[in-house]
Design a protein around this nucleic acid. Structure first.
Lengths: 345, 345
DNA sequence: AACATTTATATAAACGTTTACTTGGAGGAA
DNA sequence: TTCCTCCAAGTAAACGTTTATATAAATGTT
């Protein structure tokens, strides 16, 4: 049954050594020769058998602007789910960092995708669109995490940012809010853009206008967001009754700024964050936020990549994990006033 | 030069297959036979050459009580430094989780340490003392991270908890504090114990008494610490002018409790945390804390494990990374009063 | 043009590992 | 005892990979 390198060698007329190198994308083989060998190997069903059982998966952590706090909380939880599922399936996990800023970035990437038998899962939170073309050239099966672009040719597992943000708006509306602002990260990663779409969609659904003066652009660090928000508040602008934010960092930075400027949260302005970072539970007030199960994402990534490898389906799939709202104290129910009035009567 | 399996085979009289299996701890070889083969191989210098160049390192994440917030912030930063250094040296990183609660825990561990040529670095923040004996049996070189016990037979890279805590006390004393309490985690991981020793040492150095009523035992979650601290405060106990805490989580939980109980930080009581978690920068007031460079620890782990492999020294070494104090707003300078008086005159 | 050097390509041979199989002795059952 | 089964121990042979080497073409130098 099992097609061997020697059989391919006999048919193509090249030595086993050459065949081996060709099939594993090692150097020292003419590209024409390599093509012939690979084609023959495919025809003979060499890959079908070896591929069926995955032994290792490579987790590529794509880095661009260095570790940010966002990653810090995303990474270990995701890896946790990822690893657990791999263990269950008897798969070994190899973790590789890939630094966009390295000068041999392209070469590194190519090396990582050399081995046809170890599929690659890449965390793309920080990925740049123009890098997608490099990813295309990888020899191995691929799965993208936490990023999506229509031009991609591979499947992905990601957070349903748009829907979640829409639901955040829904929630605020249900609490009586009509003027809802947007705390917008000044660095537009893909996830933020989706969240913005969700914000728009949510506003549109409830026939609310997206008032541009309620959109505040802030840095994605807590200190930065706090400082910029303070500057913004100094001018004494008209404020909405509530803000949704691109993430918890921005939300908390802004919240601190408001508090220090004498604006009470949630009494004057309500805030909803995104990501449900661990410390959003202990701030004063506790920050209401959207939580995605990172463990689930990691687990799903493994399942999807196995499907991909086994079924060899060319159909792209997008697996969306839906965040859930975590209610805390940073949103005020404006409807309450009416109830209070009733009590007084 | 290079000793080969076949040479060992000829000398021992066993087939190359048997030799291979014996040297890699695979099954199907009599233990007596295995001993002879390994001994001969050692004599012939088989290991010296193959071992010289490490190709992969296994990072074992030892888990016991599941992911806690402590790990969440430790893990990715450490892995970052670890990975970077490995990349620089052309070493591949394989990450394996090891769940203490799994019923085949022992078997799993043994499997991970089977390959003589991939040294193992194990993160031991949560490790249990009785598990050390299993680790002893591993066939490969080993390095322990973030944990130390005198009975261990391998080297380690860890935080200098004791010294750091002593310096925290020094700092408080320099700010005029004489009554210093201790916010003590109710789950005593090794690191906490070291920190406690450091606290004692620091107090002793300055001829201060460790007043037991100033030691408050709190859960290691933020909510838990907050609630217990509140309960403690309800009794209206005598309070010190400052607390050092086992970590930031406990410090922040306690801080929140004090604030909600009408005790101002730092005006009434000062607080120093440990670990410098990212969000300690944005709390009100910002939490003064001890920061260890996790990246450095990861990097050092790689360097040490390479040294270990190459030099084959049997001498244990302990590499301590010294935390530094990050000054924020949670500590009040009591000496200031005198200066103010001077100004008034 | 003549020679030397470098580079790209291919392979023979040797490597360590794995699989399928042989062997011999232990342990029961009749 | 005889027969059968089972299992641990060991190996032959085949596997894919790697290394050192051969060869021819391309390039540089005189």
């Amino acid at each position: 049954m099992g097609t061997t390198i020697r059989q391919i060698s006999e048919i193509t007329g090249y030595s086993p050594a050459t065949v081996s190198k060709a099939l594993n994308n090692k150097g020292g083989v003419n590209s024409g020769t390599s093509d012939v060998i690979v084609k023959t190997a495919k025809k003979m069903g060499y890959f079908q058998e070896t591929d069926d059982k995955i032994k290792r998966v490579r987790l590529i952590v794509y880095k661009n602007y260095g570790l940010n706090i966002d990653e810090i909380q995303f990474f270990p939880l995701m890896v946790d789910g990822f690893q657990k599922e791999c263990q269950r399936q008897g798969i070994e996990v190899v973790v590789s960092y890939l630094d966009r800023r390295a000068e041999d970035f392209e070469l590194q990437l190519q090396k990582l995708g050399e081995d046809r038998n170890t599929p690659v899962v890449i965390t793309g939170t920080e990925i740049m669109e123009q890098d997608l073309r490099y990813l295309k050239n990888l020899q191995c099966p691929m799965l993208m995490m936490d990023y999506w672009h229509e031009s991609m040719e591979f499947s992905g597992v990601l957070t349903d940012n748009e829907d979640a943000m829409e639901r955040a708006v829904d929630y605020l509306v249900s609490k009586g809010h009509g003027e809802i602002g947007y705390l917008k990260g000044d660095f537009r990663i893909m996830a933020f853009r989706s969240r913005e779409f969700g914000y728009w969609r949510g506003m549109g659904k409830h026939n609310l206008t997206v008032d541009r003066q309620y959109t505040v652009e802030l840095p994605v660090t807590m200190d930065g967001a706090c400082q910029n928000m303070k500057r913004y508040l100094e001018a004494g602008p008209k404020l909405p009754t509530a803000f949704v934010a691109d993430n918890d960092i921005i939300a908390l930075g802004a919240m601190k700024a408001m508090q220090e400027s004498g604006i009470a949260v949630p009494d004057d302005v309500s805030v909803i964050g995104f990501d449900d970072m661990p410390f959003s539970a202990i701030t004063i007030p506790g920050l209401t936020s959207m939580r995605t199960s990172k463990e689930t994402m990691g687990k799903l990534a493994v399942k999807r990549i196995i499907e991909l490898q086994c079924e060899k389906s060319a159909v792209r799939t997008k697996t969306l994990v839906c965040p859930e709202l975590v209610e805390r104290d940073s949103v005020k129910n404006i409807n309450e006033r009416q109830e209070e009035v009733r009590w007084q009567i």
